[in-house]
Design a protein around this nucleic acid. Structure first.
Lengths: 203, 203
DNA sequence: TTCGTTATCGACAAGACTGTTCATAACGAT
DNA sequence: ATCGTTATGAACAGTCTTGTCGATAACGAA
């Protein structure tokens, strides 16, 4: 007996990779809103338009899905940071660099995802995010700039903290920018912070 | 028929307030580790040593428990901040103020709880935390200091951002200090940050 | 077209979690 | 000591969630 169905839509069959990406996309929106612990197979499947056993078929288990999602999210966050830095080679444009970074972190709410993951204990925390290598690069530029003038080069720790500070601030800011801090204040704050850090690096 | 029991421990009956506090304490440890969405009645009850209907009796529902917990947590965080500031009246000791605040936020992992709540959409975000009033107080001190000297008083926004910056940084730092940043670096970073902010406020 | 692979789904299973009900017993008040 | 209030727990119900299994059909390859 043929089951009476609405219009009997034909079953769509994506390639394994396509299906995985679509599923990860749906899971990512859940990650942003309810965190890794709140991801539900049924909800993910519903959004994608498949049944939940299909999700299990592609990722083995719920934990498998979450791990794949974590890996992809961290990769994208890191890649975004890398792009932002690569687009701003000089040390002069710290303001625009901060805006670039902020923009990247805002894309797909990456800062939110990162904090969710950090809180939930997934991922390697800041260690995974290559902020220390970035600090080393900045330090090198700083050294060359000091070459000519008579100013002494501060210890590496000073540069490292100077890079760490905006990173930490931007992270919190991205979460609180939705609630309690207006976007307008956010823009002004980042500009103010950029000037502060720039002045410190130069002095 | 009397059910065969181990030793038939006598039922303990706490006062309603005592029971509520004990239950909230247990729920708070879960909040720190798995976030508000991860709180489980059975787990809370198990830790307290009661049955889970008892928890429901005192809070009506799971959501009632979470709301009560959120309220108590935010109150404590705010009170902790207030204490830290009250214990450091001058603007001179910004370094020790930062350490005080950091200490308060570390007590009971309050920064963690706050970020969990902010991410999950509970609580009024930063608006609830009276950081703007604190900025106003700092600004007043700044004005009086500038009175005698010939220096111009910067706009309030500058003071407000100067207070906001350590707040944001400390928030992120408290989460990442467990993973990726050693506690030693945390202490040095806070000292460095205090000096930076102090120099900025004076200049 | 034919065939093999496998993405997909329906149905079911097992457990977890919240919430309800009713009986019981602990504690304070008189 | 007696009594009323109510904190407490055992048992049960209903829903949600992950995971399994077998059947089916879509797509690529031949």
């Amino acid at each position: 007996m043929s089951r009476s169905r609405a219009v009997a839509e034909p079953r769509r069959r994506r390639s394994a990779d396509e299906a995985r990406e679509a599923i990860l996309d749906a899971a990512e929106t859940q990650l942003r809103t309810v965190g890794p612990g709140g991801i539900r197979l049924q909800e993910v499947a519903r959004v994608v338009g498949v049944s939940h056993p299909t999700v299990l078929h592609h990722f083995g288990s719920r934990e498998g899905l979450v791990e794949a999602l974590v890996a992809r999210s961290l990769e994208r966050i890191q890649a975004g940071l890398f792009d932002a830095v690569a687009a701003q080679p000089g040390t002069e444009g710290i303001a625009s660099l901060l805006e670039q970074v902020s923009k990247q972190m805002k894309a797909d709410d990456r800062a939110r995802s990162f904090l969710w993951l950090a809180l939930a204990g997934y991922g390697p925390g800041l260690k995974g995010l290559a902020v220390k290598p970035l600090a080393e690069a900045v330090h090198e530029v700083r050294r060359q700039k000091r070459q000519g003038s008579g100013k002494r080069l501060p210890p590496f720790e000073d540069t490292w903290f100077s890079v760490l500070l905006p990173a930490l601030a931007l992270l919190s800011l991205s979460v609180l920018e939705d609630q309690g801090i207006s976007e307008f204040d956010g823009v002004r704050f980042r500009a103010w912070l950029a000037k502060l850090v720039h002045r410190h690096l130069e002095s």
